[in-house]
Design a protein around this nucleic acid. Structure first.
Lengths: 341, 341
DNA sequence: ATAAAAACTTTACGCGCGTCAATTTTTAGT
DNA sequence: ACTAAAAATTGACGCGCGTAAAGTTTTTAT
């Protein structure tokens, strides 16, 4: 079996001219079926693959897609990244995964190095408040960009995410229907814009239901939400900051910390009679099934968010990188009843 | 400010010849300091970056490095990947992160697409038992490869990981010293070779200490360890499979499931007097601090494993991709005492 | 100051493939 | 079977940069 060095040689052994072979690799459907058969048969025998660097150098538009998430150590983002990756591959693109690791500077550097990859498009879940708006604006002006998970108003060609109102209204309504109205437990300066939407939704829903909103704001910076939640909960429990026996955490990672604090202090959490506190939350984090007690939460529509994100990006790419107007697509949550509330 | 299209133009505005500019980008130290100053001054004014595809097409050795982990939704791997990424960047390389997502076929596809990236080297944490040995053997014969976390005997130019004996001996010795000897809780057919080493270490240590080993093997396939651990624990607790009040789990993710099962069944876990069971584990998973109770475990030496892995890879690359003989470097564990045991 | 070494410039080729224009072959349609 | 349309071939150029050879300038050392 001779080694095939380049497309020239491969064209020779397959009996097809190089330009036609090139066309085949660009789009197999673009050549006659008999030709395609001959190329694919040669492909079986010689396992040649076009030099990816030469291809990308010459194509005006590459098949590269960048996927950027804010914090990969959060399994939520790892899961969604997985789905996005697979969808891109299935569509014939080459995804590359990046994590900002919670650092705004790194997010900027990623966008820089992404630019030099000349990607056909980018799926970007920004850090949020900490993001360099102007940098992202500049970037998405050059590269077709779809934002997901975390919305930065007006940035990117489209945004796909979850409807935070749907999350909070379901959890609040459930808790008020089955017991006392919840306090809202969140970080004082949340990194993520979803947090603000959730707080506002909490206030609105509580008022609509005729209850007075009560928000517990805890200190802490960074992306170590579990620890922040744990310490914040310790403090809140010590100070008796809860008005009722119900708490709604802004997100599951805070709730994980909250439950850990309750356990440490010997407070039984759950909806059973012998429990002193009910805790619910939002996100349906992969671990929320394994907390003690298991966490009642509102689940993202993972699949739809991810699927719609890639769909939108592909539309954007095929549309030349521009949409007439920026769209925002929000998917509702699904309430997951477990033991904690 | 004129747009710089290529190195030719950049060389012109910087007043240096293109070959010298090319040399600069390959290694800034390789040009005279006055020359370097002029280039860097021009760089300030024009922010030009060499076309990465053209560079990689022509260089015999790229600056690309592949990082492959078996399961990115496990925060342990996300964390180690983060460290590896940053070390590579600091050394002037361009890392690309891949996850096999627990699927052997995907691991193979990643190696294929990695090959076409012509990487200078690859840091590979294989799936383990499910990996296609011959494929990895073939790959590491072509591409300088360092294995980490999960050892496949004889494969890759080197292996860097943790000393499983150190993990288990510390946890077993601690548990026997402070209470009854533990049973060992593990999957019947573990995906990871570390699991086998841990079981053997458990048997050895127990015998050395004069206790009879007792292993509880649970069913389950795949990478959803928490759920496997939870169900296995439910079954084991129902059947009264525990010989003593102590359990050592093969890894933290199983332990997370175990603790969830205990909580569901109302079994108090911990080292206090009112507790019925002690549970310890291995890995120091990022979440293990927030379990209920918090998990006593043996921690990987994350930093050293990661640092040594990249160091070894760089040595390998500088050594032309071959070592005289394959080395295995193991780092000992550090016992983390928390509440569960 | 002078010779040798080091660094730079000029010129030129090649990498592997995209793409175009002109030509030839194959397919499809009445 | 004849013609127009579709597809493939041939030949050639260019992408942006690595790299080598030969000549020129600058630096280092005696």
């Amino acid at each position: 079996m001779t080694k095939i060095k380049n497309m020239e040689e491969f064209a020779a052994v397959s009996g097809i001219s190089r330009p036609t072979v090139s066309k085949y690799f660009h789009d197999p459907e673009s050549v006659r079926s008999t030709t395609r058969a001959r190329i694919e048969e040669a492909l079986e025998r010689f396992d040649y693959r076009p030099n990816i660097f030469a291809v990308n150098q010459n194509r005006k538009l590459t098949k590269n897609i960048g996927i950027v998430v804010p914090y990969l150590a959060d399994p939520f983002f790892a899961e969604i990244a997985r789905y996005l990756e697979q969808s891109c591959i299935a569509a014939g693109y080459r995804p590359t995964l990046f994590s900002s690791h919670g650092e705004p500077e790194l997010e900027g550097e990623i966008l820089d190095s992404l630019r030099s990859l000349k990607p056909a498009g980018v799926l970007l879940a920004p850090l949020g408040r900490a993001s360099d708006r102007s940098k992202i604006e500049n970037f998405s002006g050059t590269v077709p960009t779809v934002l997901f998970d975390s919305n930065l108003e007006g940035l990117g060609a489209a945004f796909i995410g979850s409807d935070n109102y749907s999350f909070v209204s379901q959890t609040v309504e459930y808790m008020t229907r089955t017991g006392e109205p919840p306090s809202f437990f969140e970080m004082r300066t949340p990194a993520n814009p979803n947090a603000n939407k959730r707080r506002n939704a909490y206030i609105e829903v509580m008022q609509r239901l005729g209850f007075e909103p009560h928000i517990i704001k805890i200190d802490g910076e960074g992306w170590g939400f579990e620890e922040i939640g744990r310490q914040g909960a310790m403090k809140a429990l010590e100070e008796g900051a809860l008005r009722t026996d119900s708490v709604l955490c802004s997100n599951d990672r805070l709730a994980i910390g909250f439950l850990a604090a309750c356990y440490e202090r010997g407070i039984r959490v759950g909806r059973k009679a012998d429990c002193a506190l009910r805790v619910a939350s939002n996100d349906d984090h992969p671990f929320s099934k394994f907390t003690c007690p298991s966490l009642t939460t509102a689940a993202h529509d993972y699949d739809n968010v991810a699927a719609r994100s890639v769909e939108t990006l592909f539309e954007l790419v095929e549309n030349g990188g521009k949409f007439d107007k920026r769209t925002e697509t929000l998917f509702p949550a699904r309430l997951i009843l477990r033991e904690s509330a």
